[in-house]
Amino acid sequence: MNRLGEKLLIAFSWISGITLVSVVFFIVGHLIFKGIRAINLKLIFGETRPLDALLLRKQVFHGLFPAMMGTFLLVVLSVGLAAPVGLASGIYLAEYAQGKVRKIVNFFFDILATIPSIVIGLTGFSVAVFLHQHYSKQIYPCLLISSLSLSFLVLPYIIRSTQVSLESLPLNTRLTALALGGTRVQNILYVLVPQSLSGILSGLILAIGRCAEDTAVIMLTGVVATAGLPRSVLAPYEALPFYIYYISSEYSSPEELLTGYGASIILLIICMTLFLFAFIVKRRIIWQTFYHL
């Protein structure tokens, strides 16, 4: 390799780096430039007084409040459902599974992590239809079905972050309680899990972010463009990412499009905040959670 080749390689890497950074800035800049005007209380609450809306005294029309609440409920329910299952599976994988069993379990969780979200959404939808036909005519795609499906989607995140943070504990720490006469369960509950809390937490935050941003799963399982606040978990609901998708194809006026930009900025802020939070809690885990093989 001669000097020219060397220079070309370095020049190429600089061009790539600058291109990528400019693209990201262009995308975010475009959103902010076009949408910053829309960011105000009216965007969220419409004509309703914010306090009335927050206390659920009055319905919000022409505002993002129902969509934001929908996303919030979705996140709480999905992560609430996925967390116990994911934590326990992660603990099993890190502390109990061995040899062949461990390989097989790992393989299935890799598949679960790779299944496209729309396929998980389709499964959720099919489950709803199945229940509708065989159990109760009351069951339609709804908040509960969406949350269940989303919990499948984020399960691998929680499993992996739990597993990786447990496995990365030094042998010294692992042996401490055992050498003092602790049983295996005691070691897990009193030493290992408390010691890997930051990793587990950051996995949970990533799962929250994934629930907040996903569109493909919810569009098949019960999200709608206008529903107001969901009356129960068996009712349809609104959500921020779906609202953005809906506006992009169905907007009827520049004002409506503007709310789409506003919603995008809000969603971006929510996801970036969650991401930074997870990042600060545990840097390394993020990367391993995404790409554990």
Partner: peptide
């Protein structure tokens, strides 16, 4: 393990 205590090379307080 309660009857046979152990102290490690590197101190390992939790």
């Amino acid at each position: 393990r309660r009857a046979v205590g152990m102290v490690f090379q590197v101190p390992n307080p939790l």
